[in-house]
Design a binder for these strands. Sequence first.
DNA 1: CGATTGACACCAA
DNA 2: ATTGGTGCCAATC
Length: 122
Amino acid sequence: MKNSYRYIPDPLFPNDNFFDLVYQVVRLIPYGRVSTYGAIARYLGAAKSARMVGWALNNSHNVIPKVPAHRVVNRNGFLTGYMHFATPTLMEELLKSEGIIVENKRIINFKDVFWDPSFELL
DNA sequence: CGATTGACACCAA
DNA sequence: ATTGGTGCCAATC
């Protein structure tokens, strides 16, 4: 799985690990929509590895093309990973800029913008 | 190479 | 409805 995108030339990043699969799916999340760790994990066939998805996003900063990690929240619509961005408010700002209603680290219209890869894709 | 670490999710009470 | 406990598993330490 290393055709439609490429990685930074860092030997520390293998080509076919679980992380890369996560990056692929996250890039498919449309503008103005969001998905969840669990939904992505299920889509990858690793239903019980939601935590791995979040962990994968830690490295997403070093990946090319860029991964819209701000579009991934937990199943309750909370921006649980906001502190991993450049500034504590960046994630919220990015989502707002895409028309998503965020209030106090939580997506208000969550069910309206939720994008489930296992359902939307096929 | 065993132990720890998570940007989570599920379930029992 | 809330809450506390447990499962998970690849990457790191």
